[in-house]
Design a protein around this nucleic acid. Sequence first.
DNA 1: GATTACAGTTTTGTATACAAATTGCCCCTC
DNA 2: GAGGGGCAATTTGTATACAAAACTGTAATC
Lengths: 226, 226
Amino acid sequence: MADSHDAPLDVAAQIRTDIIKGKLEPGTKLREVALAERYEVSRIPIREALRTLEADGLVESRKFSGSVVAPSPAEDAEDLFEIRIVLESATAKRAARRAAELSAGGEHDAKWSEIRAEINEILEAGDAVIADERFEDLAVLNMRFHFAVAELSGSLSFISLLRQISGKIEWLYSLNLMRRGPQAWPEHREIIAAIDAGQVEQAAETMARHVRRSRDSYFATMSERP
Amino acid sequence: MADSHDAPLDVAAQIRTDIIKGKLEPGTKLREVALAERYEVSRIPIREALRTLEADGLVESRKFSGSVVAPSPAEDAEDLFEIRIVLESATAKRAARRAAELSAGGEHDAKWSEIRAEINEILEAGDAVIADERFEDLAVLNMRFHFAVAELSGSLSFISLLRQISGKIEWLYSLNLMRRGPQAWPEHREIIAAIDAGQVEQAAETMARHVRRSRDSYFATMSERP
DNA sequence: GATTACAGTTTTGTATACAAATTGCCCCTC
DNA sequence: GAGGGGCAATTTGTATACAAAACTGTAATC
């Protein structure tokens, strides 16, 4: 099957991809019938998808006035990084606390082990991708890593909030083409090490530093080539 | 017109109210046909409403498995307050910065003036409500105030994130019956004063203190009567 | 007696059809 | 010629109808 929009698997994901890849530019009016024809479904799934994307901040809707592609996230990139710094240090802190509790109690939390194992897979997959210099795949793995950490925290609120901004973050990174990936990847292991060790403050600080570097790198490359 | 669910004005708002007021308890399965009958509309508006509420974190949905009322926000009240502290100090800071820019440039931003006027109305309405001891109306005004500040910040990301957690916050407060309202209300004027004056750091700190007090009051009353 | 397979029921997902609201355009009037 | 009002075309919102998937209970077999 083709990768663009043959199978009506998840319309929201397809529209999201088209927005992130730049096929649908900010400000574009999203007419429901046009989208219905394009993705070969009826208007109803399109409407559902638009509501989902609205929640993700990728489109904006007004009653009886339709939906448009939201402004480029570059507009408030600073906000997004600021939010990430506070949000993700909090999740890392929470995850480390849970690690400490679990190891103290000696309990075997099945959910924890499962996520923890997935993180190892993600980290190794990242190494492989870097070795093969297939950097474009790194953005997805990066998002998966940060999500997995949020899941380790066990807080539904944090997961849900990260999910809320992840759409725009991904959009942002695709503009930047994830150039920092190779240098950034090893930092993930530091974060996990701190979490595993139950070092609460260090986990938070390592994560905050990681995101800050990411931010600085983003603005550096964006000022080079606007 | 009645206040419960006669007019099909906004189904999402009605379901939200029913969840917050406890008429729909966490874990309750939300069958679409049942809701359609209850609110006297078809299934389609119900589905739209459920997507909206899912984005607000009040319901959880799984494909082909329907929607259920989300777990009580009391579960992660600490997380919610922690998020609010960082998020809302950031919005207050941003709003103060914009105020400083506008007054320096001498520009008349129509949008700003409009929101600023609305805030005055909200503050006065709050005073009136307190004078009449109609405290149950204060929760709504409180949410409106915090939203208005977010709008002053001009950052769509912040507004959208606050909107994401506001549903749960409101839910949380309704469990607490907003006992701190009368003491808390004057603090809102301090926050606005700092913003108007363009005092960036003070706006952030005042807002953070406001939310921290709110948190402490919440846990105090909740420990009294669990 | 327990387990598995199957069918009936229930519930969600989707398509088609129609009503309501907005927007833009044209014509009429001043 | 300019401005306002109303009509029509476009677009979103909603209802009805149908298809697909999941759950449940029963029965048959091991």
